[in-house]
């Protein structure tokens, strides 16, 4: 298992490097003038050249790349040029990250818990109404684009329940809707797969053996079926992290939550390259770490992976 984990770790580091390089390359493809921001018109040719040279944008590519790696490694993410000109990006992000992180974690936790619970109830055949309602919910949430139901929820639900439309840090009641909206999609995913896995497990021989030994159905569900169905669920963790990230970009701007997602939207609109770069890097890192975490957890929990391949499948 150690071998597996270390190879996965190395893989992730390579991917991280690949991301850094790709981000760097793509950004350099954009017109160099973009780095001058608002001051573009106010300066003349010579001054512009000076600034561009100072930013190191005239150096050969491999020199720039090396400098870039060093910069990022030391935590220097550049200086904002349009959103808040002159302010180091790291400082801007410092105040935003806690919001996004808090929201993301809260929403993920809620989705996982409710999704899995819903899935378990849907798998246990008693309760046809719950199954039907659950199915409709899953189908609707999966087929209607998130963009649309986010907007609809914000508008109609705030109206019906008299909830605030914008987020205020000091009014907990304004936290409910954004977190819930963000959780809907992931909950559906977990419910769907948990139910499917549990139903699959229930048909397996070892469950019948356990019951043949004389265990009560409830106990069999708890001790055998649940754990076996839960373990493969971990593979959905990385993609739910990604879904939460992209969802948060919407939701943060919809509800004016001062987090990284909303910041990204603004940075893009204002063409603030360093800021966009930094946010992309951070989101990518989260995504990569998420995948690593998913694989490592799977390796820890499933004894079969420790020792062998899964029938050659990836």
């Amino acid at each position: 298992m150690i071998r597996y984990i270390s190879s996965r770790l190395i893989q992730s580091v390579i991917t991280l490097f690949a991301v850094l390089t790709i981000v760097f390359m793509l950004m350099r493809l954009m017109p160099v003038e973009g780095y001058l921001g608002e001051s573009y018109d106010k300066l003349d040719e010579i001054q512009r050249e000076k600034i561009i040279e100072n930013l190191g944008l005239k150096d050969p590519i491999h020199v720039q790349l090396k400098k870039f790696y060093k910069r990022v490694a030391s935590g220097d993410l550049g200086v904002s040029i349009a959103y808040r000109p002159g302010v180091p990006v790291a400082e801007i992000l410092k105040s935003k990250i806690p919001y996004s992180l808090g929201f993301g974690i809260a929403s993920l936790s809620i989705s996982i818990i409710s999704g899995i619970t819903l899935g378990i109830f849907m798998a246990d055949s008693e309760g046809k109404i719950l199954k039907r309602v659950g199915n409709i919910y899953i189908i609707l949430i999966n087929s209607i684009p998130a963009a649309i139901y986010y907007i609809l929820i914000q508008f109609y639900i705030t109206d019906i329940f008299k909830l605030p439309m914008l987020f205020y840090i000091d009014r907990p009641i304004s936290w409910i809707l954004p977190v819930l909206s963000l959780s809907l999609g992931t909950t559906a995913t977990y419910a769907l797969w948990m139910k499917r896995y549990m139903v699959d497990e229930l048909n397996k021989d070892y469950v019948k053996l356990a019951m043949a030994k004389g265990l009560k159905r409830r106990e069999v569900m708890k001790k055998h079926v649940f754990l076996n169905a839960f373990v493969p669920m971990i593979q959905y963790l990385p993609s739910s992290i990604l879904f939460t990230i992209s969802g948060s970009i919407y939701i943060e701007s919809l509800y004016s939550i001062p987090g990284m997602g909303g910041l990204l939207v603004e940075a893009v609109q204002r063409q603030d390259n360093p800021l966009v770069e930094a946010i992309v890097l951070i989101y990518s890192s989260i995504g990569i770490i998420g995948m690593l975490a998913g694989d490592v957890l799977m390796a820890i929990l499933d004894p079969r992976i420790k020792l062998g391949k899964r029938e050659g499948r990836i």
Partner: peptide, 11 residues
């Protein structure tokens, strides 16, 4: 049971 592999809980 017939199939010893599937009769036991792999986890």
């Amino acid at each position: 049971f017939q199939e010893p592999m599937t009769a036991l809980n792999p986890l």
